[in-house]
Amino acid sequence: MIETLRVGAARGLIEFRHTLTNAQDLWGYFFPAAGLLVTLFFTADSKVPGTNFSLGASTLPSSIGMLLAFGGLLTVAQYLIVDREDGTLLRAKATPNGMSGYLVGKVVAVGGMTLASVLVVLVPGLFLVEGLRVDLGGIGTLLWVLPLAVVATVPIGAAIGSLFDNPRSFGMVMLPILGIVAISGIFYPLGAMPGWLQGVGQIFPIYWLGLGMRSAFLPDALAAVELGDSWRHFETLGVLAAWAVAGLLLAPVLLRRMARRESGSAVAARRERAMNSMVR
């Protein structure tokens, strides 16, 4: 187990350094961050209806929670689909503990880039909007929310990606996740939605990521607009930990099951289908 973690972490650090030198990967990570900064710039002087609190300040923490969710769920699923098609997973299958090491590597690599994209939004955002709370309590919250966010989403993203073998099917992954974002209180308060949607939204980690980030940066008085009139730190910790455990248990099983079906002929057939579709 320790050797698997060591090899996986080393693999993840190599991928992380490679991503930092790949313009296409950097664009994929930082373009959404840049879009959020533009939104913050135009909402910096707007106020939350009925209050004197900045609309941009209230949106920034939730948006960071969404970035964390997208990085863990969508990016990992996309990478896994591509790695399956080009034979990367087949090579990992041929090494001892290769699939477990692959998963650990993705947690490290994608987690590192996701946290970097969060900093790209957070640091300028602190200067663009007013009203954010930056103190030791908020920093302490970040110290457990950020790593837990990565561990709670990356394995689930890997499990989702293992179900698809074609990059062109990625829309089938993205659309349901966008639907979950819509009912997770990121852009619209969950408490203002019908009761059954509130229950559905709280099942998934995206709501809790947004809540955790809001609790780290918004004044305590704004907890009154949240469900339960509090930041619910214990519930946030419990739900995210549950998703992390579920993902870490489920993802290796699905990855090994997927790897058993991988072969040189299967990779070659997918490449041939891809080439034929490009020719058409």
Results as ranks from 00 to 15, higher is better:
Thr4Pro: 02
Leu5Asp: 05
Gly8Cys: 06
Ala9Leu: 15
Ala10Leu: 15
Ala10Cys: 04
Arg11Tyr: 14
Arg11Glu: 13
Gly12Arg: 00
Gly12Met: 00
Leu13Gln: 07
Ile14Trp: 00
Arg17Ala: 04
Leu20Ile: 10
Thr21Asp: 11
Ala23Met: 09
Trp27Asn: 12
Trp27Pro: 00
Gly35Ile: 12
Gly35Val: 05
Gly35Arg: 02
Gly35Tyr: 04
Leu36Gly: 03
Val38Ile: 15
Val38Glu: 05
Leu40Asp: 00
Phe41Asn: 01
Phe42Cys: 09
Asp45Tyr: 06
Ser46Arg: 15
Lys47Gln: 14
Val48Pro: 07
Thr51Cys: 08
Ser54Tyr: 06
Leu55Arg: 11
Ala57Lys: 08
Ala57Thr: 06
Ser62Leu: 10
Ser63Lys: 01
Gly65Tyr: 05
Met66Ser: 10
Met66Tyr: 04
Leu67Asp: 03
Gly72Glu: 07
Val76Tyr: 01
Ala77Asp: 04
Tyr79Gln: 11
Leu80Trp: 03
Ile81Tyr: 05
Arg84Asn: 12
Glu85Gln: 15
Gly87Trp: 01
Ala92Gln: 05
Ala92His: 15
Ala94Ile: 11
Thr95Tyr: 04
Pro96Asn: 13
Gly98Trp: 02
Met99His: 02
Tyr102Pro: 05
Tyr102Ile: 08
Val107Tyr: 04
Thr114Pro: 13
Thr114Ala: 00
Leu115Trp: 14
Leu115Arg: 07
Val118His: 00
Val121Cys: 00
Val121Lys: 09
Val121Tyr: 08
Leu122Thr: 10
Val123Leu: 15
Pro124Tyr: 06
Leu126Gly: 14
Phe127Lys: 12
Phe127Cys: 00
Val129Arg: 12
Val129Phe: 09
Val129Glu: 13
Glu130Met: 09
Gly131Cys: 13
Arg133Trp: 00
Arg133Ser: 02
Leu143Val: 13
Val145Gln: 02
Val145His: 04
Val151Glu: 03
Val151Thr: 08
Ala152Arg: 06
Thr153His: 02
Val154Arg: 11
Val154Glu: 00
Ala159Trp: 11
Ala159Met: 12
Gly161Pro: 11
Ser162Thr: 00
Leu163Pro: 03
Asp165Met: 06
Pro167Thr: 07
Gly171Ile: 14
Val173Ala: 07
Ser184Lys: 05
Gly191Lys: 14
Met193Tyr: 02
Gly195Pro: 07
Gly195Lys: 10
Leu197Thr: 06
Pro205Gln: 05
Ile206Gly: 10
Ile206Arg: 07
Leu211Asp: 02
Ser215Trp: 10
Leu218Ile: 04
Asp220Tyr: 08
Leu222Ala: 03
Ala223Ile: 03
Ala224Gln: 06
Val225Gly: 04
Glu226Val: 03
Leu227Asp: 01
Asp229Trp: 04
His233Leu: 07
Val239Gln: 07
Val239Trp: 01
Ala242Val: 12
Trp243Leu: 09
Val245Ser: 06
Val245Asn: 08
Val245Tyr: 10
Ala251Cys: 07
Ala251Pro: 02
Leu255Trp: 01
Leu255Asn: 09
Leu255Ala: 01
Met258Asn: 07
Ala259Trp: 05
Arg260Pro: 00
Ser263Ala: 03
Gly264Met: 12
Ser265Gln: 12
Ala266Glu: 11
Ala268Glu: 15
Ala269Lys: 09
Glu272Cys: 00
Met275Trp: 14
Ser277Arg: 15
Val279Pro: 00
